[in-house]
């Protein structure tokens, strides 16, 4: 039982990383009906930029550790930087193709992904080799019964959940959220309401990339190694999570992320090969039962 609970903690932790990343796939799909194949790479850019920003702040270290406000500054600047990159990618690569056949933007996204992976790889100060990720969060261990939980895990899980609840509240309750939902349902009708749909789409990419950066920083805080390819396989899994939950749905992405994270860890505890494939098994089973994913209805509630 305690081993199960211990694995559950790891599962929730990985699940929050998947969920944060899955949100971007889902929101972007909801609003422009495209699968942003480069979305996972924003996770890598987020983690990588945090490394370099942290290096820039190294003068502020006290006893080899960053003070709280510096950690906050590092994370926020990495998130903003990645968010702006997301907006830029949309403007330059996707927007010109918005009214073209789907295949064009899909291929373009694959190209963007390759660029985001290989451009930093080619830069001499980054390069292809994995880099260690700085320890940003305190690592105090707590024992609850036989289960060990670290302060890092608690921070990551709590902050992720706060981010997800805030996003859901923004989309469901605010005027801007209503605009996001309106554009996802009907772009022309949104224009006729006076909504600047291009601006709404830009903000959606911004939010997606900001959350991807957060998930990258959190992932790297657990497995402190960053390389240019990490976004690719984490992205694939989070995309699967988004589809399991029902792509286009915010709550679906969150649910799918946690389902995938938890089952993956539990399966890995049985057999490490099982862990890697379990996502696909769940995906296939869910899609056979509910082709639109768990919370994916044909349209309603979609972002």
């Amino acid at each position: 039982m305690t081993t199960f609970l211990q694995f559950l903690v790891y599962g929730v932790q990985l699940g929050s990383v998947y969920a944060l990343l899955a949100l971007g796939y889902s929101m972007v799909y909801g609003i422009v009906r495209m699968i942003n194949m480069a979305h996972g790479d924003f996770l890598m850019i987020g983690a990588l930029s945090a490394i370099f920003i942290a290096m820039g702040f190294s003068g502020f270290m006290v006893d080899g550790r960053y003070p709280f406000y510096i950690v906050l500054a590092i994370i926020l600047s990495a998130m903003i930087l990645t968010g702006l990159l997301g907006v830029l990618v949309e403007k330059i690569a996707y927007k010109p193709l918005r009214d073209r056949p789907r295949m064009s933007s899909l291929i373009t996204a694959v190209g963007v992904s390759m660029f985001l992976q290989n451009f930093p790889r080619a830069l001499p100060f980054i390069g292809p080799q994995p880099r260690p990720f700085p320890q940003l969060f305190p690592l105090i261990q707590f024992r609850l019964g036989g289960v060990v939980v670290t302060s890092t895990q608690i921070i990551l899980i709590v902050v992720s959940i706060i981010l997800m609840i805030s996003l859901d509240a923004i989309v469901q309750k605010t005027k801007f959220g209503a605009q996001i939902r309106a554009v996802s349902f009907d772009k022309d009708a949104s224009l006729l309401m006076g909504i600047d749909t291009n601006r709404v789409i830009s903000y959606t990419f911004l939010i997606g990339a900001v959350l991807a950066a957060a998930s990258g920083i959190f992932y790297a805080s657990i497995y402190p190694q960053v390389d240019v390819y990490m976004g690719s396989w984490l992205g694939t899994k989070s995309f699967i999570a988004a589809v399991i939950g029902g792509i286009g749905s915010i709550r679906g992405a969150i649910l799918g992320g946690f389902i995938l994270g938890i089952t993956e860890i539990l399966a890995t505890s049985i057999n490490s090969n099982l862990g890697y494939g379990i996502g696909f098994v769940i995906l296939i089973v869910i899609l056979l039962i509910k082709p639109a994913g768990i919370l994916g209805k044909t349209e309603i509630d979609k972002v």
Partner: peptide, 11 residues
């Protein structure tokens, strides 16, 4: 007011 009404069906 467009042809076919185009209300936001999920809202």
């Amino acid at each position: 007011v467009p042809e076919g009404r185009h209300v936001f069906s999920g809202l």
